[in-house]
C-alpha cells in the first residue's frame, strides 16, 4: 500500500510543476514519516471548509516526521488551480485527474483523508470533513507521530 505509482502531476508550494506529466506518487519515499493524504475536489464544499484545517496541520507539524499531500481529483485541472488561487493555499498538491490514486485508496466520499503510519500502513481513514471532529483527526496524527 505504501508504494503507489500512478500517473499524476505534483506541485509544491502552490507552483505547478508542468515538467513531469507522468510523474509518480511514490509513497515509499516517505517511509518513516506519517503521511496525511487528503483527497479533495474544487466542486466539493466540505473540501473548501477543510483547507484552513489542512494548512494548520501543515504548519503545526512542520519539522516533525509529517507529510501532508493534498490529492486533487478534478478532471479539469484548471478548476483545481482556480480553487487553489482563491484559497491562497501553499499545500503540496498531487493531481489525480484520472482518479487512479483515489481508486487505489478506495475513496468513497469527498473529501477523504488517509492517514498512513511511519511503517507505511494505512492507519486511519477520515471519510468526509466534519469540523467538530478536528480534535479527533489531530489525535490520530499525534498518536502515529508519537508511536514507537
Amino acid at each position: 500500500m505504501a508504494l503507489v505509482t500512478v500517473i499524476a502531476m505534483v506541485s509544491v508550494g502552490g507552483h505547478v510543476a508542468h515538467a513531469a506529466p507522468s510523474a509518480a506518487l511514490d509513497l515509499s519515499q516517505y517511509h518513516g514519516k506519517v503521511v496525511y493524504l487528503d483527497f479533495w475536489a474544487s466542486w466539493c464544499a466540505p473540501c473548501k471548509l477543510s483547507f484552513p484545517f489542512l494548512e494548520k496541520l501543515q504548519s503545526y507539524y512542520a519539522g516533525r516526521n509529517f507529510v501532508l499531500l493534498a490529492v486533487n481529483v478534478d478532471h479539469d485541472r484548471t478548476k483545481a488551480d482556480a480553487f487553489l488561487r482563491e484559497a491562497g493555499s501553499n499545500l503540496p498538491i498531487v493531481y489525480d485527474t484520472t482518479g487512479g490514486i483515489a481508486r487505489t485508496f478506495n475513496v468513497k466520499a469527498m473529501p477523504t483523508s488517509v492517514v498512513i503510519g511511519a511503517d507505511g500502513r494505512v492507519r486511519y481513514v477520515h471519510s468526509g470533513f466534519f469540523p467538530d471532529q478536528m480534535p479527533l483527526y489531530e489525535a490520530h496524527i499525534s498518536e502515529l507521530l508519537n508511536a514507537k
Binding site: A41, C44, D76, K79, A102, K108, A109
Partner: peptide, 10 residues
C-alpha cells in the same frame, strides 16, 4: 458514479 467522478455528472 465514483466519488471523484461527481464533477462529470454535474
Amino acid at each position: 458514479p465514483a466519488a471523484w467522478d461527481h464533477d462529470l455528472m454535474a
